[in-house]
């Protein structure tokens, strides 16, 4: 697996296990997680803490929004951007 896939699978596992709390859920790459009602603002805060622990990246509070982090693709892109920077 390349880096992008590793990040993606880690996130998918974390989101279905900890945030959606239904590991059987088949989460799509481009599926609206917050807009689809699977996650809420609090889950975004949990996501922020997870990313900080797992990838050592700090996403500022005002970036933890539906517009910026609604799909797995958006989340992966954000983490890759910060890892690359």
């Amino acid at each position: 697996m390349n880096e992008e896939q590793t990040i993606r699978e880690k996130l998918r596992a974390f989101i279905t296990r900890e945030l959606i709390r239904d590991e059987s859920y088949n989460l799509g790459d481009d599926e609206g997680i917050v807009t689809g009602g699977l996650m809420d603002s609090f889950s975004l805060a949990e996501f922020g803490v997870y990313v900080e622990d797992e990838f050592n990246i700090y996403i500022p509070d005002s970036d933890l929004t539906v517009e910026k982090l609604d799909t797995l693709n958006q989340m992966v892109a954000r983490i890759q951007r910060d890892l690359g920077a």
Binding site: S41, F42, L44, A45, E46, G48, V49, D61, S62, L64
Partner: peptide, 15 residues
Amino acid sequence: ARFYVFTPLSRSLLR
């Protein structure tokens, strides 16, 4: 309120 109260407070409590 989400940016300056809810998220920072949730995060610091989660930590």
